[in-house]
Design a binder for these strands. Structure first.
Lengths: 227, 227
DNA sequence: ACAAAAGTGTTTCGGCTACACCCATGC
DNA sequence: GCATGGGTGTAGCCGAAACACTTTTGT
């Protein structure tokens, strides 16, 4: 990198990631126990430092790759947290992202190696510093995203039933959806397609599997959930 | 500030502000000509450097105070732009905000002193670096905000007609709204109240002035515009 | 008289919601 | 037979949109 023309204060810049997953009919969060001071041993979000030659997005991708072994993860900027005292270890400006992970695809050993654990969203432990607030912001952003377009492709397995999709939405919004109305709404979007075989473990009758279309007819989706 | 425990790369962090205003029935943008290299003389957003003891919000407030003489300005984070090459002068991570200003209240001399100019939104000049993209992001965020709750309190004068409010919305969304339906929708929100006197300059019949209620009955507003 | 904005009323349409109801099957 | 989830159909409600129409007043 070329030398900077600017003479101004410089800052540590970090990324912190709220990593969402979906397993056993519940929304999950990947958290880790700090391995350095301050707050050693306490639960926190996965984070990392922004290097000289990378964007904040690249830094987040790097952190996610290190912990899950996955590339091309869905990421969205949430907010910047920059209170000078937010980290007792020094002044750190943190750019927060949320990510969506296919739990069935990630590297479980790598996660274990890092002392990270998937927590059920509603049962997660208290987090250090301002990480609680970060999670709150990320959850709001996830709800907004999920209300405007159908999410699930980044969280559910390749093949899933409409019940699974609905359960995901119920976990995200922490409320019930009418089974019939949900089905009709989702199918009207024409972004998922029915497969030939059925899942028979969750119901006696058996429910058809669906998958996300590779090239949905309508790229611009409508609103899904009224908030 | 205490010494940092961390040994990691540090970065210049800047804030850039998209400053919206409203005057002469049009949405405006406050832009300035650069007074330093690189890109000296070209049009850019108002920006500043984040100092050691301030949040990015404080930095943005400081920039806005310096140029407009106003405090307590409405600010919202838009996005972080962090491409290492985005600024030819060196690696700068920029946190973008949009602001809403009451043009009738701000310090015109101060603005002139800084070589800043209010541009009509649709006629603005090309901007340096990635500032064009920043404006695009900010405009999207403004539309989102305006579609979820009634804005105008931060842009319109104390007393305004419903025509002015509608014209503001038409400038923001770059489309027409049906006068009758707009009026009914806005009044149903119960966040503005009718005053006793009329504006007679814009119409023969005269239109009642309104103002935002100090304590609206319903703090949670409904959706206004379907996007 | 006419134009132009203010303000009110009416009708239509589509989507959301609630809920009834049949289907298939394992127990 | 009965409980359970799968899947379809329908009636009611509400808000958005389109638009007709009356009021007021300066020119």
């Amino acid at each position: 990198m070329s030398a900077s023309l600017y003479k101004h204060p410089k800052h540590h810049v970090a990324v912190d990631c709220i990593i969402f997953g979906y397993e056993d009919d519940d929304l999950k969060l990947l958290l880790s126990q700090r391995r350095f001071q301050p707050a050693l041993g306490e639960w926190s979000l996965m984070g990392g430092w922004v290097q000289d030659d990378e964007t904040v997005e690249k830094a987040a991708e790097r952190v996610l790759y290190q912990i899950t072994g996955l590339k091309d993860i869905y990421l969205e900027q949430v907010h910047v947290f920059s209170n000078p005292d937010r980290d007792p270890g020094g002044r750190v400006i943190s750019v927060v992202f949320y990510a969506m992970i296919r739990i069935d695809k990630h590297d479980k050993d790598l996660v274990k190696e890092h002392g990270a654990v998937w927590w059920t969203f509603s049962e997660k432990p208290d987090l250090i510093f301002d990480h609680e607030l970060m999670v709150k912001y990320a959850h709001e952003k996830l709800k907004l995203r999920a209300s405007y377009s159908l999410i699930g492709e980044k969280l559910l397995p390749e093949r899933f039933t409409i019940l699974q999709l609905r359960t995901l939405y119920e976990a995200i919004f922490q409320r019930q959806f009418d089974p019939g109305n949900f089905r009709k709404k989702i199918l009207s979007l024409k972004v998922i397609e029915k497969l030939d075989d059925k899942n028979t473990t969750d119901s006696k009758k058996g429910a058809f599997y669906y998958r996300f279309k590779k090239y949905p007819e309508e790229f611009i989706q409508e609103r899904i959930v009224k908030q």
